[in-house]
């Protein structure tokens, strides 16, 4: 019998030195090892518990939450988001919709439900656990966000324009870094996310466990964190701006079978 622990990752990380093609293939090796030892399933398990746990003033679970395919339907629901929801007359992604369900089904206040959206390794957030669980129910489903309603089309258009929009203290657009193929920031490759070939593998694996954070991260966090590094103020969680960015990226990645939650560097 053979026993192997994740401590081997340390040696893999240390060999990641030289700035060359060799380093890149080492990096791929590292990514593969990381994926094999990913704790994503633990997050899915805790998320399932939280999804089914009665909470809030109405002491209700989220099991009747309608993510777009009907109340309580989880299979393939994440792959069809973001989409237009008639009951709120707006486009919502997974996290925005779950927040809506916390407020309507569980009777929680916006303030309470958004108090701690982004967690850390010591204490991941409820939203992170829930995202892991719900996204995991879409494995194998092709990404197919809503595109027929005028509001869905408007969200895509807004996201597309935002991608190239120069703003903030440092005059960046998303395309300042994610605009040209084959570029790196330090040693990290920068995917050109307005092109399907780059957006597909990425969107198909978010939300994800991030080894560098030792915890699970969501799409709203990913977009929020880009803006932080662009030196803008903070986008409001669940706002139209973040949903539009998510819609643009997901439409660009459409057709790709979902295979997340993934494991990132």
């Amino acid at each position: 019998m053979l026993v192997s622990g994740r401590s081997v990752l340390l040696t893999a990380a240390l060999t990641l030195a030289a700035g060359s093609a060799a380093a890149q293939s080492q990096f791929e090796k590292y990514q593969k090892m990381v994926a094999e030892g990913s704790p994503v399933e633990l997050f899915e398990l805790v998320g399932e518990g939280l999804w089914k746990k009665p909470q809030g003033p109405k002491n209700a679970s989220l099991e009747q939450c309608d993510l777009g395919l009907g109340a309580g339907v989880l299979q393939g629901a994440y792959a069809r988001l973001p989409r237009y929801f008639r009951d709120v007359d707006r486009v919502m992604d997974l996290e925005t919709r779950m927040l809506h369900c916390m407020m309507t089904l569980q009777g929680r206040s916006l303030e309470e439900a958004t108090k701690r959206l982004f967690g850390n390794a010591d204490k991941p957030s409820e939203m992170e656990y829930l995202s892991a669980y719900v996204a995991g129910q879409s494995r194998g489903h092709a990404m197919a966000p809503g595109q027929s309603h005028p509001r869905e089309q408007a969200a895509y258009e807004l996201g597309r324009k935002l991608y190239f929009y120069r703003t903030g203290l440092w005059d960046f657009s998303c395309a300042s870094c994610h605009g040209e193929e084959g570029k790196r920031i330090r040693m990290s490759e920068l995917p050109v996310l307005y092109k399907p070939e780059a957006a597909r593998p990425l969107i198909a694996t978010w939300p994800a466990y991030r080894v560098s954070n030792s915890t699970f991260k969501t799409m709203q966090w990913r977009i929020n964190n880009c803006f932080r590094q662009m030196r803008t103020p903070e986008p409001v969680f669940g706002s139209e701006v973040v949903n539009a960015m998510n819609m643009f990226l997901t439409v660009t990645a459409q057709g790709e079978p979902y295979r997340g939650p993934g494991t990132k560097r």
Partner: peptide, 20 residues
């Protein structure tokens, strides 16, 4: 069939795999 002693050198949320 296995009694293993491990230490704090193993990372958070450990994964073990073996073959039977």
């Amino acid at each position: 069939v296995i009694e293993g002693q491990i230490s704090q050198a193993i990372s958070r949320n450990p994964v073990f795999s073996f073959r039977v």
